[in-house]
Design a binder for these strands. Structure first.
Length: 466
DNA sequence: GGAACTCGCCAC
DNA sequence: AAACGTGGCGAGTTCC
């Protein structure tokens, strides 16, 4: 690559980034203190109610016999001892340090109805303690001031703390609503969030210059294509919910894990989980279809047999080989070249001028430039938008950032101007400033109504910029 | 009584 | 041969 950013460019990005983040931190984010208090109490009542039910169960009675007054339902250590030592159940999964696991997946597999109550309690406590309580602890005069750090992450991404603004629930409906209901714009303002679409894949395009990857990103559907191959479908259409699930499986069970460096063994197991909730447009369950295609064998009650898992794993192995050796061979070549360079020199350089050095495993090393550079693109835009906001004396302010997304606390009168500016900076100015952006960036936006909390966001079509 | 650890779980 | 990248944080536990 002939275009080479310098270390000084990297330094400047961090320097200006810190200043822009400091302004966002000072601005802060409004929280509904009364709501947090009320909801916190409400969750406590709910949890107590669940505790009362749990106390009636056999599991609890066994637990009490062993621990007496030291019994603590939040202690996974105690729970593991009860399940795997006292009750002598076989742990379906072990933790890194080799003890029987008590995470959600494991407890569900154990098929003990009482454990569902523990999971429900865990979920509510997570919302109460990690989010609502943290907001209350950190708020000053109704505003939290999350920090955005540029000095903590090996890949030169950012992190956030006090409180962490980058892990507020989004996927789980209840957790999302309960947590984000606490986050508000300034009075009379509205929250606008703009995020890059598939930025890591696009950055991978810039590094690898893989023609097929570029084509698929712009015009194709790599997740759908992979689902078709993995589940041996004739075709796939997202408009059928069962087939949409299979596409999700292709994406989250294969494509993303592969890009992070996972291998066919884990992917196969993952994909079988996705297959359970997938079906064809004619209603055929995905697993049944897969059996018809000879990908798995099922027991009478519809479970995948051990032999079936082996068969499917072999199938996924072949698809993995094809994925890297044929489909994205340019990407593979880049991985080999980059790993070799690192082993020879002890470091690699990012397109943004940052140097990655020190001991790294292969997956870490190959992920770093992509993750870091994706974030630097957001950071560059954040700085630009912040500068324009200063120059033009906006009443609107940047107030936060989540790796590939920026949030503004927006004056509705300025909404169109703000949206246009962000659209222009992200999609036009960025690739002009950094010509190694050989594929066009794209952004999507969400907007909340005026004076409405973050859980009310709706898709917002950004104005066209010529 | 605090530091350092494990585990689980939220985000990208 | 091995096999998922980057974080923060609450709670429990262990160590000193």
């Amino acid at each position: 690559m002939e275009i080479q950013a310098t270390t000084y460019d990297a330094y400047r990005l961090v320097h200006e980034g810190i200043l822009a983040f400091a302004r966002a931190e000072r601005h802060g984010i409004r929280v509904d203190v009364e709501y947090c208090k009320k909801k916190r109490a409400h969750l406590t009542r709910k949890v107590n109610h669940l505790y009362a039910k749990l106390r009636e169960t056999d599991l609890y009675k066994t637990w009490y016999k062993v621990y007496g007054n030291k019994l603590n339902t939040e202690s996974n250590h105690q729970l593991a001892y009860i399940l795997y030592t006292v009750m002598k159940m076989d742990p379906p999964k072990k933790t890194k340090s080799g003890k029987g696991s008590t995470d959600e997946e494991t407890l569900q597999q154990l098929n003990v109805p009482e454990l569902d109550k523990i999971l429900e309690i865990r979920k509510l406590l997570k919302i109460r303690d990690t989010y609502l309580n943290a907001f209350l602890k950190e708020q000053v005069h109704g505003y939290i001031h999350p920090f955005f750090n540029l000095h903590t992450v090996r890949t030169y991404r950012s992190s956030s703390d006090r409180p962490n603004f980058q892990n507020i629930p989004k996927r789980d409906e209840q957790a999302m609503k309960t947590s984000r209901r606490a986050i508000f714009p300034r009075p009379g303002h509205q929250i606008l969030a703009v995020d890059f679409s598939g930025i890591e894949v696009r950055i991978a395009c810039c590094y690898t210059e893989d023609e097929k990857l570029i084509y698929d990103t712009l015009h194709g559907d790599m997740h759908g294509d992979m689902a078709v191959e993995l589940f041996k479908l004739d075709s796939l259409n997202k408009k059928y919910p069962g087939e949409k699930n299979l596409r999700q499986g292709g994406k989250n069970g294969f494509v993303f894990p592969q890009f992070y460096g996972d291998y066919y063994g884990n992917c196969a197991l993952n994909l079988l989980e996705w297959a359970k909730i997938g079906s064809l447009r004619d209603g055929t369950p995905a697993l049944e279809h897969m059996q018809n295609k000879g990908l798995v064998t099922l027991t009478k009650d519809g479970k995948v047999t051990k032999k079936g898992i082996e068969k499917f794993t072999e199938h996924v192995k072949k698809i993995e080989e094809d994925f890297w050796n044929r489909r994205y061979k340019g990407y593979k070549k880049w991985k080999e070249k980059t790993w070799e360079e690192y082993q020879k020199k002890g470091y690699i350089k990012f397109l943004t001028g940052f140097t990655y050095k020190g001991v790294a495993r292969r997956n870490e090393l190959l992920n770093a430039p992509i993750q870091g550079t994706a974030f630097h693109s957001l950071l560059w835009c954040f700085i630009e938008v912040d500068k324009i906001a200063q120059e033009e004396e906006w009443d609107t302010a940047l107030c936060g950032q989540i790796h590939d997304e920026m949030l503004t606390d927006t004056n509705p009168d300025e909404l169109e101007r703000v949206a246009k500016t962000i659209q222009r900076v992200t999609c036009k100015d960025l690739p002009e400033a950094w010509p190694w952006w050989i594929i066009s960036p794209e952004v999507e936006a969400d907007l909340c109504p005026v004076d409405a909390s973050w859980n009310t966001k709706q898709e917002y079509k950004l104005p066209e910029v010529e």
